[in-house]
Design a protein around this nucleic acid. Sequence first.
DNA 1: GCAAAAGTGTTGGACGTACACCCATGC
DNA 2: GCATGGGTGTACGTCCAACACTTTTGC
Lengths: 238, 238
Amino acid sequence: MTLQKSNSLNPHVSVDCVIFGFDKGQLQVLLIKRGGKDEALALPGDLIRDDENLDEAASRVLYELTGLRNIFLEQLRAFGDPERLEANSDIQWLNSVREEPQARVITIAYYAIVKPGKLHPKPSSFASEVKWMPVLELPMLAFDHSVILSQALHHLAASLKKEPLLAFEMLPRKFTLRQIQKLYEEVLNKNIDKRNFRKKLQTAGMLIPLDEKEVGVSHKPARFYQFDKKKIKTKGWL
Amino acid sequence: MTLQKSNSLNPHVSVDCVIFGFDKGQLQVLLIKRGGKDEALALPGDLIRDDENLDEAASRVLYELTGLRNIFLEQLRAFGDPERLEANSDIQWLNSVREEPQARVITIAYYAIVKPGKLHPKPSSFASEVKWMPVLELPMLAFDHSVILSQALHHLAASLKKEPLLAFEMLPRKFTLRQIQKLYEEVLNKNIDKRNFRKKLQTAGMLIPLDEKEVGVSHKPARFYQFDKKKIKTKGWL
DNA sequence: GCAAAAGTGTTGGACGTACACCCATGC
DNA sequence: GCATGGGTGTACGTCCAACACTTTTGC
């Protein structure tokens, strides 16, 4: 993958993308290994171009580094500490890829949620690897990306409380009621009563029960459901 | 007022401050008239310096332009359309004050709420005038500041729903119950039942009734109250 | 048969909303 | 005395949280 012609890159502003998914009963985030000696884990992010706005930059950068496209990215906030790029390993890496490695860079963080099973990210540009990692078991990330991620996580929890539909964007097309509940429990970080939770799902009336059930599980198999996009009633939830 | 030494200004990133207050029964915002031929109204904002973080930049810029200090500013979001500075009048003005007037500038918007009576803003730097203007009766602002203001207003309404204490930060030290209610009604843009509203204020128990009453009003004079900062119970409101 | 998760209703308390009349003051 | 906003209580419905047992499957 070739980089954009470098004279159109703006060396002072970057975007970073926090992509959340839910898989294997855990909240996951999409990270890249940046090429180079340290192989540090980082959020997918890069400098913006001077001919695009911030939203466009985030979409392009995400695509260039991971191959993911058509993801609805929402701006989180800007991060601009003068020291945010000044760890030694980060400086070395910047020297190896940036035209103005010493420049002060403000970054604008974006976040999005996707169905992990549906998408098959491919590393490119300076990403040597792209992978989903469980949010609750992460090592330190490059630059100030651990800080950005933790703020994105707070924001995700707040959004999910207000807007339950988001949950369905993170689940596969067919899912069990337990899966949704696990998702809410992990993101909101608290236990939820099974009966009350299902009652509320029923009231919202956005679920289509399927005839299909789990197979090969050593307990009563759970029914699969689909999300009914036509019936959208949002009135505050949970 | 002298500008900071210009070689430390970062020509690519600015901050803009949306300062809300409540006075004369109306929601007000603090604006400057920028010097120059057009005398356009704008949010107080300017380029950041390379030795300060974004929060520090916002505080400094607000102080330099309006004389206001010790205001708690919160970041709203970044605005970075390539065309955001390209109205003719804006280009002319930039040519007259900036060292790199053609540079693309990303701006980080901040917002805050203050008690208008308490503070006496003084124009300085390139601001030829500073004044409170009613939010609901504004002309077009310079640059993309009308867009920024409208987003700040949405954010204010959302914050006020969650966090009632904010209301008290916008009112004078002594206030009547009607004043608080007017504030909520204007920001949330809906009518509120007087009895229910007062009941909730009582339940929250954050008000100290004073012996003082309104004078010179041609109706039953209202009692003044103070906000009791010790009793902070926030549990979602309105 | 036993372990493991699925599935299913009722009740009590808290909270929000709707609603109407008398009171103190200036003119 | 009249216009204006201040001040006060009740009744109903909705929403939320707490809570336990039977069912189906794999081993």
